[in-house]
Design a protein around this nucleic acid. Structure first.
Length: 827
DNA sequence: GCTTTCGCTGTACC
DNA sequence: ACTGGTACAGCGAAAGC
């Protein structure tokens, strides 16, 4: 018997003599690599119809107990059955727990269970590892004391330990959670490839960068006269790949990370190794990386957690990032404040020595930035895996709906609930075609420059509504029937279209949410008292889960899909925000604007403390855990009309607080599909107006810029328009400028991928009626820009509505200037 | 042949 | 396909006259 402390990192399973075993890789506090092996038989539930006699149930259990699978790839049997009183969607049920010898036969067993007494079979689709984590409570990223028999270098399980790059292999007997808040720092290896063709299977690998603690190298098969000292040269690609494998094994990391490495670097590496007949045996059992998932491949390396950092950044950070793309360069710049080395891609045979030198630096830096970003994201990943209770491999790739669902599944046992199944194929298409339900309320603003504004918003609006009003799949009682009067124990929600009933007795989902909100509040205040990246990450993970839970209930792929709950939540949201608007009016504040959970009020002659008193009054009248809070006081704010100029535009405003900090929403300034010229001018115009309270100097600035545009003094980079290619080029029905440019790029042999930002500018044309797409050119083309287009379609639209607030028509300004200029040049 | 309408597309807000 | 609905705006082609 041995006993060690360890932290589980990578979860896997294997079969031995037709039984399932869990294989978990972790580390001890002193850095030894541990492999835990545990026998574990999976199970599922047969939920019985009500009113079946005990005798019948006994007979049924016996019958089930004898089921065997012999026609499959292995012999499987039922190990044990167990009758239990459980809950399913909140209702009491009797269910038989069926423990089987091999989870891979789950489906085969269920097919033999189409029996009269059985109402439903459930939890066939709960992942084996997930189930193990729930049952043994061996949650990733926490510390445990592991007791068991050491089987390192033994013949157990066919000598599995002999081929394993581990310090100790233990057959688990007892696992106990220990209190250890010590943050585990993993050994991380970041890598990046440069190739001579972007398409996997076509090109060759030119260089590989590797970055780990105290380790920075570029491996290459290209030789230039004087190599930088971090570059190691190999005779050919095969030697270089062998060297990669050698270094990988020497470093023996816990985590391999890359940026887009699931879809590019790792499959590329695998493909080249296959072609060159090199065994990419980087798994701790000497296995090669395996890919699953088809369209969105996921690369798995046995015993080593491969993390494609891009995927985690996309789900966990993208909503907070200002970056206009989620590329490594933009993200590293924003999160680390480090700029990427600029490198112009050329065909490798055309590159000169200096360019190769730069290419090496570029390659190294990609791995350096990936490494640093990973370290920065580590706390968040750990907190995610602790909250969702799923391994890091999954956490780093899952979207928010999967996160919400994992949170639910891992906590169901507290409510004695059996999990609902995932929707089947037909169900999904049915759900996807459902009508949209009405969403949140947005108040139409009156265009104006306002002074002295206060903004309030509801804290965690959606989750607080769902929790307070108990809106969920298991508490939904159905639509109101005309004759229905049995609503004593139910809450009625009038969505305007339909009336829905929900049970008053708290359901598990609203209860879980309430817990999440409570803990989020607790960690947030703890963080404010003792700021640390861990507490910040923890508070943030809870916040994200809470916010995604509303969308989850309306999502077609959800186990606990309930669009009626979503529709009810929005109906309730509309009711409360409108009430606040009305009460504000009665208390002498005037609502300028409101969107979903926020409200901007004109203070008029009211003081700040009067505004806070009003807030207090509102809160005293709010039910449950609903709460309105102060967002900020603002010195000025501006709302404008829509382009047509008929009414005030929603989702578009700019504010400045008393410290001079601006908050700009919806304006072209914050839209990446407008050129920088227009965006920067608009930003400056807004700043001047908000700071000075009038339009005078902003107008001057605009006039100056118009002059510069006409004199062709604008730099090319200022007039570039960027639009994302959101789908494969072939799927476009409309031929827009960016599609035209993308086709042109493709024809010129440039890489064009779904998701990339297409850049172009608009050039002059003799044909005045030419379409925009006919005047669109690549950034490096030489045609002079179209003055008229940039004035009338970029700069003017960006500031026109702002000056309109002051009754100034900027269009006249351009026309006048144009006339003057023409008359000058004509004479 | 010109103007208006409408579907497609992308982006942002919450 | 991988959380929800609301809103704005530009482009290009179809529809309307």
């Amino acid at each position: 018997m041995v006993s060690i402390d360890f932290i589980p990192l990578d979860y896997d399973s294997f079969d031995f003599e037709e039984r399932n075993y869990v294989k978990i890789i972790g580390r001890t506090p002193s850095g030894k690599r541990v492999c835990l092996i545990d026998e574990y038989g999976s199970y599922f539930w047969a939920i019985l119809k009500s009113g079946i006699s005990e005798k019948k149930i006994k007979e049924l259990q016996e019958k089930i107990g004898k089921i065997t699978i012999k026609d499959g790839p292995r012999n499987s049997n039922v190990i044990k059955t167990h009758l239990e009183n459980k809950k399913f969607l909140g209702k009491e049920v009797k269910a038989i727990k069926i423990i089987i010898s091999n989870y891979k036969d789950t489906q085969r067993f269920s097919e033999k269970l189409k029996l009269q007494e059985i109402d439903k079979i459930r939890e066939l689709d709960v992942n084996y590892i997930t189930r193990y984590i729930i049952e043994k409570q061996l949650i990733p990223s926490y510390w445990y004391k592991l007791e068991g028999e050491e089987i390192s270098n033994s013949s157990e399980f066919g000598g599995i330990s002999n081929n394993l790059d581990c310090d100790i292999v233990i057959k688990a007997e007892k696992i106990t959670k220990i209190e250890n808040e010590k943050q585990f720092i993993p050994k991380v290896l970041a890598f990046d490839l440069e190739t001579d063709d972007f398409e996997i299977g076509k090109g060759k690998i030119l260089m590989i960068s590797l970055v780990s603690e105290g380790f920075k190298k570029v491996l290459t098969c290209k030789k230039i006269p004087s190599m930088p000292d971090y570059v190691e040269h190999y005779n050919d690609e095969a030697d270089m790949l062998e060297a990669f494998i050698k270094y990988f094994k020497k470093i023996s990391p816990d985590i391999l990370t890359g940026y887009f490495s699931d879809s590019f670097d790792l499959p590329y590496l695998k493909s080249r190794c296959e072609k060159l007949k090199i065994k990419l045996n980087i798994g701790i059992d000497n296995s090669i990386p395996k890919f699953s998932g088809g369209v969105n491949p996921k690369g798995r390396i046995s015993g080593i957690t491969h993390i494609d950092l891009y995927q985690f950044i996309e789900t966990a950070y993208s909503q907070y990032l200002q970056s206009e793309t989620l590329g490594l360069g933009d993200v590293a710049n924003e999160l680390l404040g480090e700029k990427k080395v600029v490198h112009e891609f050329k065909r490798s045979e055309k590159m000169k020595e200096e360019e190769w030198r730069n290419f090496f630096a570029y390659n190294l830096q990609d791995a350096v930035l990936t490494y640093k970003l990973f370290m920065k994201a580590w706390s968040d990943m750990v907190e995610f895996s602790k909250l969702m209770q799923e391994p890091l491999f999954n956490i780093s790739r899952d979207g928010m709906s999967a996160n919400v669902e994992h949170y639910i599944i891992h906590n169901l046992y507290k409510y004695n609930e059996i999990a609902e199944r995932k929707p089947l194929h037909d169900e999904i298409s049915q759900r996807r075609s459902r009508e949209k339900y009405e969403g949140a309320f947005v108040l139409q603003p009156i265009p104006k420059l306002y002074e002295n504004i206060v903004m309030f918003d509801f804290t965690s609006y959606w989750p607080s509504i769902i929790s307070t009003f108990n809106l969920s799949r298991s508490t939904f009682l159905g639509e109101k029937q005309a004759k229905d009067s049995k609503s004593k124990n139910a809450l009625e929600v009038d969505t305007g279209k339909k009336k829905y009933f929900f049970l008053k007795e708290k359901g598990f989902f609203p209860q879980m949410l309430e817990e999440v909100i409570k803990l989020r509040k607790q960690y947030k205040s703890e963080y404010k008292l003792h700021p640390s990246p861990i507490l910040k990450a923890r508070s943030n993970a809870f916040k994200l889960i809470a916010n995604a839970s509303y969308g989850y209930q309306g999502f077609f792929g959800a186990r606990y899909y309930c669009p009626e709950a979503s529709a009810s939540a929005t109906a309730i949201s509309r009711k409360f925000i409108k009430e606040v608007i009305e009460k504000a009016g009665k208390s002498g504040f005037k609502a300028i604007y409101s969107d979903t959970d926020s409200i901007c009020l004109e203070m008029s002659k009211k003081t700040n403390s009067q505004a806070l008193e009003f807030l207090k009054k509102i809160n005293s009248e709010l039910p449950g855990i609903m709460e309105l809070e102060l967002e900020d006081f603002y010195k000025r704010g501006i709302w404008v009309t829509t382009r047509k100029g008929e009414f005030g535009a929603k989702k578009k405003y700019a504010l400045i607080n008393h410290e001079g900090k601006m908050k700009i929403r919806g304006f072209e300034t914050v839209r990446r599909d407008w050129c920088n010229l227009a965006r920067e001018l608009q930003n400056q115009v807004l700043e001047k107006i908000l700071k000075e309270g009038n339009e005078k100097s902003a107008l001057e600035l605009t006039k100056q810029l118009i002059k510069l545009i006409k004199e062709r003094k604008i730099e090319r980079k200022q007039i570039i328009i960027r639009t994302q290619l959101k789908k494969p080029l072939s799927e476009y029905k409309a031929i827009t400028p960016h599609v035209t440019i993308a086709r042109k790029m493709l024809a010129e042999g440039m890489p064009v991928n779904q998701g990339m930002l297409i850049e172009y500018y608009i050039a002059e044309s003799d044909n005045k009626k030419a379409l925009k797409r006919e005047r669109a050119f690549l950034p490096d083309e030489t045609k002079p820009y179209d003055i008229d287009y940039y004035l009338k379609n970029q700069v003017l639209p960006a500031v026109e509505n702002i000056f309109q607030v002051f009754n100034i028509n900027v269009n006249d300004l351009i026309e006048k200037q144009t006339k003057n200029q023409k008359s000058l040049s004509e004479f």
